[in-house]
Design a protein around this nucleic acid. Structure first.
Lengths: 192, 192
DNA sequence: ACTAAATTGTATCGATTGATACATAATGAT
DNA sequence: ATCATTATGTATCAATCGATACAATTTAGT
């Protein structure tokens, strides 16, 4: 192994790419925008990601899951009342100056914006993984007698998924944070 | 008033443009795609819509409302149980071979895809108008003793809006029609 | 020192984008 | 019949897209 050493930090570059994709969307994030934000040249860009923009975005989907949902899902395993934790998770969509409230859900956006069906499936899988973790935590809490859901267990995942993906759009229509949070609260009552 | 007569049908052309925008999205609907689908030449295109693609899309938003939600909102005024009508409206998002289930909600998609904030506002306004009509119909039914909602009246609009916009994404993740419909049914129970 | 391997910077490719120029064709008013 | 007015068709513009070519630069092994 010989050759010139890499100047840039691969992880930092990928994180920077996420910010560009997240704020601009896949299509509108040009390879020049990405290259500039990542702080690397065109040659390095296509050397590191031979599949170009597509490969970079596919990797950003994985990275995003590791950065944001994963820590929460780990926390969820050790939490007493999962409904409270999930509520706080959903609240981030209503925060006035947060990235989620501003740019939306990385995965939900991908399902809309990307033309590549491979991306849609990957994004859908990530969201399903999150819903599965919610499902597990809620089931444990129910079995432990901590919560007493009034919603059929076979609908939990879809119901929670729909609440989340809905907020991703609704936040752009309903600007009143208190109304959004009250709607989250009311919707989650069926799990308490 | 003199001059050559218009060959194409303006209304038909606008309807054709809607189909292109709806299926491809605003950005990916090129002016050439639109021109071809509308059956008109470039000169006619920019003569009829001096604002180009933007003006055409803005007009398509109005037209879409007239074509799809408006007839339902008119029906809703004379219906006995608005919850049943709303349920059927939401069901179109779960139909296997329907345009809504395939292409999604024209307005919700616009909120996501369009970069122009004017479009987002127009789309949001259309959705709000629909939610307002739902609100009115439900309130009348409640006052008439037909329904007995368990959800606070100040949350009706946001709750219904969130159910609709959520389905627009959830349908791409959850493919099982019966689960989607069961989720709609359960979500609407709070109005019965 | 020399060489092979790996990274980087600049220039540029062909394709597509939204939009326009301009000549031609068709119609109504006078 | 003439002319202003409106519509149409073709050719093309500048800008931007993702992606590549290729030489220059840097490093490790010998």
């Amino acid at each position: 192994m010989a050759g010139r050493q890499k100047i840039y930090d691969e992880d930092a570059a990928l994180n920077a790419a996420i910010e560009v994709f997240w704020s601009h969307g896949y299509e509108k994030a040009s390879s020049r925008d990405l290259q500039k934000a990542m702080g690397i040249g065109f040659s390095s860009f296509y050397l590191a990601y031979k599949g170009g923009k597509q490969e970079l975005f596919a990797k950003s989907l994985q990275r995003f899951f590791t950065l944001y949902p994963q820590p929460f899902l780990d926390l969820l395993k050790s939490v007493n009342n999962p409904v409270e934790a999930i509520r706080q998770y959903y609240y981030v969509m209503t925060e006035p100056n947060g990235k989620f409230s501003e740019f939306g859900c990385y995965f939900s956006n991908t399902i809309f914006q990307a033309d590549d069906s491979e991306f849609k499936e990957a994004a859908a899988k990530n969201l399903t993984t999150i819903a599965d973790a919610f499902d597990d935590a809620l089931l444990r809490a129910k079995n432990a007698g901590i919560i007493h859901p009034t919603i059929p267990a076979e609908l939990w995942k879809t119901y929670l998924l729909n609440l989340w993906t809905g907020l991703n759009t609704t936040k752009s229509i309903v600007k009143d944070q208190s109304v959004l949070r009250a709607t989250i609260d009311f919707s989650l009552k069926v799990f308490e």
